[in-house]
Structure formats: C-alpha cells, structure tokens
Amino acid sequence: MYNTSYGFRIVTIIKERIKMNLQIEDKGAAVLLLVEEDRLDAHNSGDLKNQMLKLFEEGKHNLVVDLQAVRFVDSSGLGALVSGFKNASSRNGNLKLAGLQLQVKSMFELTRLHRVFEIYTDSGEALASFQQ
C-alpha cells in the first residue's frame, strides 16, 4: 500500500493468478473495487467474491463496486455481489454499486435485486454516500 499524488491510497492492483482485471483503491470511508471486465460471469465472479472476502478479513466493511466497464452479468456475477452484500451487512457495513449499464441494471430489476442494493450513477456519488 502506498500514497499517490492524487490523495488516495492504492491497496493493491490485482493482476496475478486471477482471471479478473480488478483495481482496488482504499478511498477512506469505503474501498472502491473497479471491475475492468466486459463480462462478470461464472468464469471470473469467484475472483471478485474472493477479493471482497479478503477485504472483509482486513476489516474493510464498506465497499463500492464500480461496474461501468461491465456490459454483461450472469447469475454467478449477481451471486458474487449478493455474497459481498450479505458479508458487508453482517459486519455492519455496506456494499453499494455504481456505473451500471442499462442492460446490467435490467438484470438487477429482473431478479428484484435493485431493491436490495443502493445503486448510484457513478462511484463518486456512491463514495460520497458513505461520508454523509
């Protein structure tokens, strides 16, 4: 972990031994997970789930998952996010979502998960909501 000139701390950038391109940044009030993938599916959703579990074990209980790059999500991807949400809630934290593309948002509506998650237009809004 090191400080950058932009005023945030980069916890880790995951590039090794996992299938997912995922950038993780500690923003103070919450940790931002930027999913840099076209798809969040049964091939890579386990990586997201495991990285969130690591953060919970490190005491990071407030997460923002930014899905702006994700064009497609399947039931496994939804399941990983639900798992993260339940783990955060059980630790008195929260997992909020940001940057959902239209068809990805439709998946949350189809499965009624839009009533479960707080969904923000972008990660800036989601992070700000943790500071209120």
Binding site: L78, G79, L110, T111, R112
Partner: peptide, 18 residues
C-alpha cells in the same frame, strides 16, 4: 420458482425460465 433476492442459488434457472 423465483428465489428470494438474497438466496445464494437458483437465479440461473429462474432467469432461463423467465
């Protein structure tokens, strides 16, 4: 049948049926 939104399993089959 539709799963509870927070169930760990069952969304895939439900989505295919939908």
């Amino acid at each position: 049948k539709p799963s509870h939104p927070l169930d760990d399993h069952g969304r895939g089959v439900y989505l295919m049926h939908t």
